[in-house]
């Protein structure tokens, strides 16, 4: 078992002929993901890499019975693309694009909720169920199948930690990037619920950063509801207040969202917090 996606998950890519979309669709295919169709209005009727049919709309793609979509279109068009997927009834929507206005994300997330669809992202690396399915942009070769479930707000930092976990002899069950924006579809608590239930996951790593209070809420949730071992890493402890540290969501505002507050909350919940990303594996032992 894995969370949200598995070896049978059929995926479409909205924006499959774009620079990012085509590169990552290719990588997903070589990972073993079942990419069943691509959507690109101008290129309908052709094939991606001589094997994946390209259609004009998500509605047309429904004949391939997709379970999930990856949206990789420029920020101004993301809301329309997500609405198209929600309207067609796709249950799992991953948005790769960075710089989506958060008002658009609000309306995507709330409309998806009303239709029972799960949204991950925007502005995250996606989801990888190791050995089964990858939807997103994580490098293919950093994983090893194992029992550590990871959830993170970053991209590259996640790979760094996955790599450290893999090299130390552990392996991963599922790795999920929530996204670096102030408004994203999934929070830590949603994922903690999944990992707590997942028989393939025995240990959990949360990678957090400054901004908002989702780490603090996760800590409270862990204290009451999670029986599996959880460890964490928090980045941004040296960040000055009021500055957006690359991610739109990584900002300390009016004293809310500091690394100290998040580390304190985790410590109070019995969750050990690594000082450096490469220390994470030693905490898992």
């Amino acid at each position: 078992m894995s969370v949200y996606v598995n070896e049978n998950t059929k995926v479409i890519v909205q924006g499959i002929t774009g620079h990012q979309g085509s590169f990552h669709a290719g990588e997903m295919l070589s990972f073993g993901t079942k990419v069943v169709a691509g959507v690109s209005p101008g290129k309908a009727g052709t094939k991606f890499m001589d094997r994946v049919p390209i259609v004009a709309s998500v509605r047309d793609a429904m004949e391939f019975k997709p379970d999930a979509t990856m949206i990789s279109v420029p920020a101004p068009f993301v809301k329309d693309a997500a609405f198209e997927a929600i309207d067609a009834g796709i249950g799992f929507i991953y948005i790769l694009t960075e710089h989506v206005p958060f008002h658009d994300s609000l309306s995507i997330v709330h409309n998806a909720k009303r239709k029972g669809a799960v949204v991950i992202g925007p502005n995250g690396p996606g989801i990888t169920a190791v050995g089964k399915c990858k939807i997103g942009i994580m490098p293919n070769k950093i994983f090893r199948k194992g029992n550590v479930g990871i959830a993170s707000r970053s991209g590259t930092l996640t790979y760094e930690i996955v790599d450290a976990v893999t090299k130390s002899g552990f392996g991963e069950s599922t790795v999920i990037g929530l996204g670096g924006d102030p408004v994203v579809g999934l929070n830590y608590i949603d994922i903690l619920k999944q990992y707590e239930q997942d028989p393939d996951t025995e240990k959990i790593v949360l990678v957090g950063e400054i901004g908002g209070s989702n780490e603090e809420l996760a800590a409270q949730y862990i204290k009451k509801n999670v029986t599996k071992k959880v460890v964490a890493y928090i980045t941004g402890r040296s960040a000055p207040p009021g500055k957006r540290m690359g991610h739109a969501g990584a900002i300390i505002e009016k004293g809310v969202g500091t690394a100290e507050s998040k580390i304190k909350a985790f410590n109070e919940a019995g969750v050990k917090v690594a000082e450096y990303p490469t220390d994470v594996p030693s905490l898992l032992e």
Partner: peptide
């Protein structure tokens, strides 16, 4: 550095080693 999270983690690690970052560049 590459990636906002890794860049932040780099600044943090520098600071923990008594180094003083001049900038953040992702």
């Amino acid at each position: 550095a590459n990636g906002a999270g890794l860049t932040m983690a780099t600044l943090d690690a520098l600071t923990l080693h008594k180094g003083k970052p001049r900038n953040f560049l992702d």
